[in-house]
């Protein structure tokens, strides 16, 4: 019959209207500033830079390769390379970002920078309460504001951070093993050289 569906719908909303006064379970929202829903593992808002160890400048993983800057669809990342170098987590000398700015008023939270980063240096933050009364200065985050420790990364994305750490540890182990092997080889070579050099010194000199 015509109009039946409308009456059914009206009944449903009437039930909701009356029910929301008597049963708390019906309420689908929470009172935000006082009550908070815990964020899910994959929550992402804006990117931040990860550093290892206590000092943010020394431990910064970013090597200023500028891949994220080039890939960023809205072009919200601005990087300046340093002139000097500092050791990275493996101990290799790398350049580092002298300047690393992200304009979060432009950023669209696409996570492409995170996906392209070969150094696990940029990750997504869960911090969303960024309201400020200066819409230009305060929304342009510099490298100090962006730098967050690896422990913080573990606290917001535990599973992902553990995976990243394992991968980095593996890389470091491989790198160290390689270095050790190289060192051993170098040592062995040197020893062999030394061993070979001693008797054949005249020969060498004679060549």
């Amino acid at each position: 019959m015509l109009g039946e569906g409308i009456l059914k719908g009206m009944l449903e909303t009437a039930k909701n209207f009356a029910g929301s006064f008597v049963s708390e379970e019906r309420l689908t929202t929470v009172e935000y500033p006082e009550q908070r829903i815990p964020t899910i593992e994959n929550t992402r808002v804006f990117p931040f830079l990860v550093y290892d160890g206590p000092d943010w400048q020394a431990g910064m993983r970013c090597v200023a390769c500028q891949i994220c800057e080039k890939e960023c669809p809205p072009k919200c990342i601005y990087i300046e390379k340093s002139k000097d170098k500092k050791p990275d987590f493996v101990g290799k000398m790398q350049i580092y970002p002298a300047r690393f700015d992200i304009d979060v008023s432009v950023c669209m939270s696409c996570q492409i920078c995170v996906e392209v980063c070969p150094f696990e240096a940029i990750k997504m933050d869960t911090q969303f309460e960024l309201a400020t009364d200066d819409r230009f200065g305060d929304l342009l985050l510099d490298r100090h504001e962006l730098a967050k420790s690896n422990e913080y990364y573990h606290s917001i994305h535990p599973a992902e951070a553990a995976e990243v750490d394992a991968r980095l540890a593996h890389e470091k182990a491989v790198a160290e093993a390689k270095a050790r092997a190289a060192a051993e080889k170098a040592a062995a070579d040197a020893a062999a050289k030394a061993a070979a050099a001693k008797p054949e010194m005249p020969a060498v000199g004679g060549r």
Binding site: T13, N16, F17, G19, S20, F21, L27, T28, T29, E31
Partner: peptide, 10 residues
């Protein structure tokens, strides 16, 4: 407020 209640909000 009424619309909120009909959508189970406050």
């Amino acid at each position: 407020k009424g619309l909120g209640r009909m959508q189970n909000r406050l």
